[in-house]
């Protein structure tokens, strides 16, 4: 069931469509996303853009720049830092925020742990599930009425059913059975004080759309998205990078392989894939023929059950 790489519209097309001619799928997706971000800019009082340094948030920031043009981006960049991130990604986050003159706020899980609002069962436990707590605390601290995220509906079943403007109550909860209908491009942004919107401007993009767009727009990314050599061990069918947080277990063999990350997050729950794709073109080609979903290959946290994401979203997760 392999896919020929030409089975995709304009796979390696770097050019914008000419006005008056062909309006490509990337043109249509981009225009929709800019429209959504402008609605946030116009109707929300104080919006944050969740910026982790990952590719989806880099694309969201790029779109925000286009939405605000010719102004600087008016959203606060917010990173909920597990402090278990790859240093290259953190360096990238800081550099990009400065480059585009954006206000960056970093709030750490460590602070929530010190406050006692997060109590971990063990110190080496994956930290992603606890991000919701620190996120909700940051929303309260800055009184954000909207938080923009890079979530996509193709990532996961629960996301496929979530609105672009996803209403959250004061506990940050998503109620899948009681979502606001979303018709045409008429987004209802209204919230009461203490409630907020999660906004997903790239809801309708797929992983491949994201990479095609990164190629076309020449969007900068952290180095770890590209092929590099890394020490790993093989565990339950996934590659576990050897780091101080994820040391090899007794009996495991360390291998040096050429790999890259398809998603970037908390070290203990993000695994690389074997790949020699060193350029964005290579990655677009590889993504077009991949046989494993993005999360299936690389996320150690969603594999526990089919409904893992749905439950986490109900608890306030992005």
């Amino acid at each position: 069931m392999s896919v020929p790489a030409n089975n995709i519209p304009g796979l390696l097309d770097e050019h914008h469509s000419d006005a008056g001619g062909y309006f490509s799928h990337l043109d249509a997706l981009e225009a929709e996303s800019i429209f959504i971000l402008r609605e946030v800019a116009a109707e929300c009082r104080n919006a944050a853009l969740l910026f982790s340094g990952g590719k989806d948030s880099a694309v969201a920031l790029h779109l925000a720049r286009k939405a605000y043009f010719p102004e600087k981006v008016g959203f606060t960049l917010l990173h909920v830092d597990t402090e278990h991130n790859y240093p290259e990604v953190i360096e990238f986050r800081d550099r990009i925020a400065e480059k585009f003159g954006c206000k960056l706020v970093v709030r750490s899980l460590e602070d929530s742990i010190k406050r006692g609002t997060i109590r971990m069962k063990s110190p080496d436990e994956a930290r992603n599930p606890y991000q919701s707590v620190t996120l909700l605390e940051s929303i309260a601290e800055f009184e954000f009425d909207a938080c923009i995220g890079g979530g996509r509906r193709d990532e996961e079943k629960a996301r496929a059913k979530e609105r672009i403007f996803s209403f959250r109550d004061e506990f940050g909860q998503w109620d899948p059975k009681n979502q606001r209908p979303e018709l045409w491009e008429l987004y209802n942004t209204r919230v009461h004080k203490g409630e907020n919107m999660r906004v997903f401007p790239i809801s309708n993009w797929t992983e491949l759309d994201v990479w095609q767009y990164i190629l076309r727009e020449k969007i900068e990314l952290p180095e770890i998205y590209f092929a590099h050599e890394r020490d790993i061990v093989r565990r339950n069918g996934v590659l576990v990078p050897v780091t101080h947080l994820t040391p090899p277990k007794p009996g495991e063999t360390i291998e040096k392989i050429t790999c890259r990350f398809r998603t970037v997050g908390d070290i203990p729950c993000t695994a690389p894939v074997e790949s020699t794709a060193a350029t964005i073109e290579d990655i677009v080609r590889e993504t077009a023929v991949t046989r494993i979903t993005e999360r299936g290959a690389t996320r150690l946290d969603d594999q526990t059950s089919d409904a893992a994401m749905e439950r986490r979203k109900k608890e306030g997760y992005f």
Binding site: N6, N7, I8, H25, R153, A160, P176, K177
Partner: peptide, 17 residues
């Protein structure tokens, strides 16, 4: 099915939602 869901696929000619 309790709500609208969105799915994506592409052919050599188009992307579909």
């Amino acid at each position: 099915t309790i709500d609208v869901a969105y799915r994506y696929f592409a052919t050599p000619k188009r992307k579909f939602i």
